[in-house]
């Protein structure tokens, strides 16, 4: 302790923050929970499914704002999308020297982040199209009105989409298809992400999950 680690505490500047800042952590687990809940657990199109989707919109929006105004390692500029660097990073995992440390997400992880965000945006966008961008509050209000015998809430909507007809149904089917494909792709990417964290943790001999949870408490 006295001597052998003169730079203890400063040497961490090259590695990602430990722990990650709270907004990155909370939004990460919030989105993860929302994706798992809506991808695997809730009834598609159900009220809960829509509620969770809207919560995900809010979390994603806050995280994207954070990508502009947050600390250096949380900002988009710290992990620009760079497919070539991503590939060379993945290859370096299998070379004797092992991967290099990066101050934020490594290039491969950065590509994963953008891929997941893109999937999220597609899933959210198609979800909004399918529900006419009505928040769950409005949906339940309308359902309550219909249940009470007041069908006028539905008339208004039909009037707006009148030009559509069969064409509207077909595009609705397509939107639904895109929603499901993007959602499944996101679940697969999430699995790849988890595998990537495991491989990278092993290569760096460092637990990469801890900084995303609470920090490693490595300060002895």
């Amino acid at each position: 302790m006295a001597g052998p680690h003169p730079e203890n505490g400063n040497g961490g500047a090259i590695a990602p923050p430990d722990p990650w800042d709270p907004l990155v952590r909370f939004s990460h687990w919030g989105i993860a929970a929302a994706v798992i809940a809506n991808g695997l657990l809730t009834k598609p199109g159900g009220t809960l499914h829509v509620w969770i989707g809207w919560v995900a919109i809010g979390i994603l929006a806050a995280r994207l704002v954070w990508g502009l105004v947050g600390p250096a390692e949380a900002r988009f500029s710290a992990f620009p999308p760079d497919p070539r660097a991503a590939i060379s990073h993945v290859l370096s995992l299998f070379r004797p020297g092992g991967p290099r440390e990066h101050p934020s997400h490594n290039p491969a992880a950065a590509m994963m982040v953008y891929a997941l965000w893109l999937c999220l945006v597609v899933v959210i966008g198609t979800g909004l199209v399918m529900t006419d961008a009505k928040s769950p509050l409005q949906i339940s209000q309308e359902r309550a009105a219909v249940a009470a015998g007041d069908w006028s809430v539905l008339v208004n909507d039909d009037g707006e989409s009148e030009g559509g007809g069969e064409d509207h149904d077909e595009s609705g089917e397509l939107v639904k298809e895109v929603h499901e494909v993007a959602a499944n792709l996101m679940l697969i990417l999430a699995l790849v992400h988890v595998a990537g964290v495991a491989v990278e943790s092993r290569a760096l001999r460092r637990n990469l999950v801890h900084p995303m949870l609470l920090g490693s408490g490595k300060g002895r």
């Binding site: 800042d21 709270p22 907004l23 939004s27 919109i57 809010g58 704002v65 928040s135």
Partner: peptide, 17 residues
């Protein structure tokens, strides 16, 4: 941070309305 996230969620609902 939790407050910012809740703010984001609240804003999403309110702005859509």
């Amino acid at each position: 941070a939790a407050f910012v996230l809740v703010q984001g969620i609240a804003a999403a609902f309110f702005i859509s309305d």
